[in-house]
């Protein structure tokens, strides 16, 4: 296993479409819930322990070889907002494109054939991690980190937030990412015996409703 492959997959510059999404930060900024580094940290903590945890668990289960179709349905069931479901599949399709070129593999090809318009991004992330020779914890780390780094970099653009302060938010949340990853991998390991119902179903209602409202705006910087 190559440790460096994890850095390649987790790199914010990995060309898989993430740059166009704020992870709900744009809606939260407009609503006045994120106004600076402190409220950004609260927002990211909430996201990490809800959708971040679910994404990490799904990614870990996919990296362990669970059935992608079952995981995709499980991710759907855990994403009430149709806008976010569409975005997750679009991002999955984009990640699949990048992943298939970076780490050619029969499993990624099979995923593309089965889901030509994309599977939920964490499912693809887990299969891509397998293709890269990475394990379930690595896939979960990518998902957990993304759940924080997306809103952080978007908020730098949205608020003109000091980039050092913003990066410090991610750094302060790192120990909690470790906790979330270990919980996610623990539940993912139960999927083989108990099915996808073993996966966590934590959700953040404001992220879901905010995404629906955001999708209706005439002027916005980010796709979600």
């Amino acid at each position: 296993m190559s440790r460096a492959a994890l850095l390649v997959l987790a790199d914010g510059r990995f060309p898989a479409g993430g740059h166009a999404h704020s992870g709900g930060a744009e809606a939260a900024v407009r609503a006045g819930r994120v106004t600076g580094a402190a409220s950004l940290e609260d927002f990211c903590r909430g996201r990490l322990h809800t959708t971040g945890l679910v994404a990490a668990a799904v990614a870990a289960a996919a990296a362990l070889g669970a059935d992608p179709g079952e995981l995709d349905a499980a991710a759907d069931a855990r994403t009430p907002s149709p806008t976010l479901r569409r975005a997750a599949r679009r991002l999955g399709r984009q990640l699949l494109r990048a992943g298939r070129v970076a780490w050619p593999s029969a499993e990624l090809d099979a995923l593309a054939e089965r889901f030509p318009k994309g599977a939920h991004q964490p499912v693809v992330l887990g299969v891509a991690a397998r293709a890269a020779g990475l394990g379930p914890a690595d896939a979960a780390y990518c998902a957990a980190y993304e759940s924080v780094s997306g809103p952080v970099s978007a908020t730098v653009r949205l608020l003109g937030l000091d980039p050092f302060e913003a990066t410090a938010v991610s750094a302060r949340l790192a120990p909690e990412m470790d906790t979330v990853v270990s919980r996610a991998v623990g539940t993912a390991r139960r999927v083989a015996g108990e099915g996808a119902d073993a996966l966590p179903a934590a959700s953040a209602p404001l992220l879901e409703t905010g995404a629906e409202a955001h999708a209706g705006w005439a002027v916005r910087l980010f796709a979600t």
């Binding site: 510059r13 060309p15 993430g18 399709r93």
Partner: peptide
């Protein structure tokens, strides 16, 4: 979107 991460445009 047109240079560094072209995935959305390719789709």
């Amino acid at each position: 979107a047109i240079r560094d991460d072209i995935s959305a445009n390719l789709e």
